[in-house]
């Protein structure tokens, strides 16, 4: 197991397949350091978990990567197709266009868009989004139909022409919108909260299918640890703004400090 609080060189061996590299990233709120990462490599495998107690800085770290929040200092590098892009100073929408997308912990929705509209919005590209292209709806729908129908059937939306009403539907919609962007690196912030059991299963299956079939890596924050143990190939443990340990789910589950600080003895 690599100890991240020590030297930063331990990650070099995983260089060829990494997708993201964070260096000296720090963020404070009102004098309290919420995120303080020396050196962190992400996207070395299909699905990675990020766990830790409340207030560890997990959501803040994710927001810094997609630039929903600006970090106080540090650099974030992205490696699409083996080239290096510094994304620390890019805007949220630019980063999304590069293929780094995040699902939201707190429910986010477009109040005036129906379920289908919401998905069409996500799938629509700049070539349709010009003020004079007011007759392009047919072409977009035709292009999008198969993919959207696939998701709608998979998750059994009752009325796709209506508005997402329940928290679960909105949460699912958020995840599908992100997947429709065909991201390379997907950050999922507590995707299972508010989802019924059967839909949770479907999301997990979909995550595993997508990461094995496509060029997609997922970083997931989740408090339902059974999900983490099941889907993740690698887990990062975060506390007080620092990533303290990294390892396979089994290693993290049995780590003494993790058990003491977070899991409690009942999990052993």
């Amino acid at each position: 197991m690599d100890n991240y609080s020590g030297s930063g060189t331990a990650t070099d061996q995983t260089l060829p397949t990494k997708k993201l590299h964070l260096k000296h990233v720090a963020k404070s709120f009102g004098g309290r350091k919420v995120v303080d990462i020396e050196d962190l490599t992400l996207g070395c495998c299909g699905i990675e978990g990020l766990i830790g107690p409340n207030g560890a800085g997990k959501t803040t770290l994710m927001s810094i990567i997609t630039h929903g929040l600006k970090s106080d200092s540090g650099e974030v590098f992205y490696y699409p197709n083996n080239c290096e892009v510094e994304i620390s100073n890019m805007r949220l929408d630019e980063i999304a266009r590069l293929g780094i997308v995040k699902t939201n912990q707190i429910i986010q929705d477009f109040a005036s868009l129906t379920i289908r509209d919401s998905l069409l919005l996500s799938l629509s590209t700049p070539k349709y989004e010009r003020f004079y292209k007011i007759f392009s709806e047919g072409a977009l729908r035709k292009e999008a139909e198969e993919e959207i129908e696939g998701y709608l059937e998979y998750f059994h939306f009752e009325n796709p022409e209506g508005y997402a009403l329940s928290a679960g539907e909105k949460k699912l919609l958020d995840i599908i919108r992100c997947l429709l962007l065909k991201p390379k690196f997907l950050l999922m912030d507590e995707p299972m909260a508010g989802l019924p059991e059967d839909q949770m299963r479907k999301v997990m299956d979909l995550m595993m299918k997508k990461t094995s079939e496509e060029d997609l890596s997922i970083l997931i924050v989740e408090h339902d640890l059974d999900v983490i143990w099941e889907v993740c190939e690698s887990v990062h443990f975060m506390a007080e703004g620092k990533v303290l340990f990294q390892g396979s789910p089994a290693e993290i589950r049995d780590h003494k400090t993790v058990v003491e600080k977070y899991l409690g003895s009942s999990h052993v």
Binding site: T66, G68, R91, L92, D93, A96, R97, V101, K102, N104, Q108, D109, F110, A111, S112, L113, L121, S122, E129, R177, C178, L181
Partner: peptide, 12 residues
């Protein structure tokens, strides 16, 4: 209009 940040996070 509904949620500008969310729209931006969807690459708009």
């Amino acid at each position: 209009k509904d949620n500008e940040t969310l729209a931006r996070s969807l690459s708009k």
